[in-house]
Amino acid sequence: MRIRLGVLIIATLLAGCDQSAPVDKGFAGLGNQAAAFTPVVPGRVFSFPADHGSHDGFRIEWWYVTANLKDAQGREFGVQWTLFRSALQATPEQAGWANRTLWLGHAAVTSAAVHHAAERYARGGVGQAGVNLTPFDAWIDDWRFSSQATVADPLADLQLSARDKGFSYQLHLTSNRPLVLQGDQGFSQKSEQGQASYYYSQPFFQASGTLEIDGETHQVSGPAWLDREWSSQPLTANQTGWDWFSLHLDSGEQVMLYRMRQKDGGPYLTGTWIDAQGQAQLLKADDIRLAPQDTTRVAGRKMPVSWSIQIPGKHLDIVISALNPGAWMDLRIPYWEGPVRLSGSHGGQGYLEMTGY
């Protein structure tokens, strides 16, 4: 999925920047009606590379990358980079300060002992943040996710970089696998009432480069995952948060799962099984058995940092556990996000995000 946490922060910004902003409903205000914005409906035909860029008329969207990395000594690290776009009005973007778009960036690094996170904010139209297509370039200040040349597939060869107090990274990402349309051909439903987003991923990136954490530099490499998602009203007022998983299996297969927790009734659960060639299969709630296991106290909250996951139809029976249980994103609106290890029927690694706790 990726109902990204930046949307929560942007909802707060909207309330402060636009006097006509509606009162929040549901988690992060994402249950608010958005009648003026473009709805998400089944049957969209995706177009690449155009859909790598911004989508006027939709209220929210994001470009999100995670990477599970190791250095030459086998030490494990996680990297996260996200750019969020939020429109105050359902109109095309304008140049200058008349622009009604807000941008937000998140970056983080995690080791078994350390977790650093940072955020950046920008107003659209003044060059501080944005997304270009030729060549592809997504940026906020000096944080960048960009292609070095104008090529047919701008996501085939990219550079990813960010820096802040205590950390920096410069990674080279490559992939020769196809993009994956999540949900029903890219229509990713989030509730029984029909709330949804358009959602695709590139889960087959291979990353390599340099990571610096607390003054120590590491040459690292490992798998990386890109999520692209946009919507106008992705949640209901009844939904209080989510648990999202992206998993790289040692078999070469990939798994995406999300569980939307609700005030009333059981969670909305779905996902995608991606084979080693990139063919995707929608997973419904009946296909998945997902349950929290061990918990730990983080920032005064009880967080489920270990989960059991079973997909009987794929002979998957694993437990995932956090590399660093204290991977708390202590930002303006805090949440938990960090790398995880896999054990059981399949080995591997991945990422977990938990919101609303």
Rank of each mutant, 00 (worst) to 15 (best):
D24Y: 00
A28S: 07
A28H: 03
A34F: 02
P42T: 05
V45Q: 14
F48Q: 06
H52M: 02
D56P: 05
R59G: 02
E61F: 06
A67R: 01
Q73V: 00
R85D: 10
A87Y: 03
A90E: 01
P92R: 03
A98I: 00
R100S: 14
H106Q: 10
V109L: 07
T110C: 13
A117M: 09
A118Q: 08
Y121D: 03
Y121F: 15
A122G: 05
V126Y: 05
G127M: 08
A129F: 14
L133Q: 09
L133W: 14
F136K: 06
F136Y: 15
D137Y: 14
A138F: 05
W139N: 08
W139V: 11
I140H: 07
D142R: 10
T150L: 14
D153W: 11
D157N: 15
L160H: 13
L160G: 15
A162Q: 03
K165M: 01
Y169I: 03
L171W: 06
N176P: 01
G183W: 11
G183P: 09
Q189M: 12
A196K: 11
A196F: 04
P203E: 06
F204I: 01
F205K: 04
G215L: 06
G215D: 09
H218V: 00
Q219R: 10
P223C: 04
W225G: 12
R228W: 02
S231C: 07
L235D: 10
A237W: 03
T240G: 03
D243C: 09
D243A: 15
S251D: 15
Q254K: 15
Q254D: 12
Y258H: 05
G265P: 12
T270W: 02
L282Q: 13
L283S: 03
K284S: 11
R289Y: 06
P292C: 13
D294A: 15
T295Q: 15
R297C: 00
V298Q: 12
V298M: 10
V305Q: 04
S306K: 14
P312M: 02
K314T: 00
G326A: 12
W328V: 06
L342Y: 08
G348P: 08
G350Y: 06
